[in-house]
Design a protein around this nucleic acid. Structure first.
Lengths: 136, 136
DNA sequence: GCTTGACCTCGAGTTAACTCTAAGGTTTAC
DNA sequence: GTAAACCTTAGAGTTAACTCGAGGTCAAGC
């Protein structure tokens, strides 16, 4: 079974060894085992778990909340409902983020258009009396 | 022409007055005028500009970079190219974020499914020997 | 005229998430 | 057998983006 040193794991996950140690200190990696002399040994499954952690982080979930999830995982089947609820809530969050991002994209595309025409005209004045809409 | 006090502007933008003063301190609001005694007076156009600022912020752009954009706006037509380029770059960033978010969503939906079936079975063991794929 | 409340500035404090340093132990390479 | 390249820990430092407190100004209402 392949294992990874902390720096190999870091490279695999696009993180630094510092960050992994920090996660461990914050209680996110109770499953990572050690060699007799204390060196962390990451298994493939640990890398997988870290990918879930990164996924949760990318939804804006703070580390302390991710720790709750990790704790639930350690507690076993009695916490299945909590974990399910958490992912449902994350799903709603991500859906909202997608909506937001779509609106952001629209505004940015509008601005690209705005500056494209201004650039062609050599001046922003070309948009001086664009409709009095929400945003020009 | 309608104007807004700092707290009205804050409410309009879902920010706090503290945050607006902080933005001002960071040079993001050079266009906001003052009454003779120093009170900020936000015009409708200022609220609009702040919405652009919030839009840029939501793409993960740091305040210092947003300031560059504000500075360019003050400098006039000679900076049209920079501003256009900036929005093109933002567009690319947002496209990448959308891709990321889609992947995140897939993983989360997978996990929702995973916990739904585990919950129905009463135990996570139901997934014990799921394929040895990337992530179960 | 005096209190109340909203505004102001300046500078300090907070928080999250790293990021690094110091001091030391272990393993590998020649 | 020693140097390089890892690893460990505890704890300090950094950064961004707020967030707040103290002390002051000013206009409105009683």
């Amino acid at each position: 079974m392949k294992t990874y040193s902390i720096s190999e794991a870091a490279k695999e996950l696009n993180l630094t060894a510092y960050t992994l140690r920090y996660y461990d200190k914050e209680g996110l990696l109770p499953f990572v085992e050690r060699t007799p002399n204390g060196t962390r040994l990451f298994k493939a499954a640990d890398i997988g778990a870290l990918k879930i952690i990164e996924c949760l982080k990318s939804t804006g979930m703070p580390i302390k909340e991710i720790k709750h999830f990790i704790d639930w995982c350690s507690e076993g089947d009695s916490t299945l409902q909590q974990r399910y609820d958490m992912f449902l809530e994350r799903k709603a969050t991500v859906e909202a983020q997608m909506e937001e991002l779509k609106k952001t994209m629209e505004l940015i595309e509008h601005k690209c258009q705005y500056y494209k025409t201004a650039l062609e005209a050599g001046t922003e004045d070309i948009h001086k009396d664009d409709k009095i809409e929400i945003m020009s």
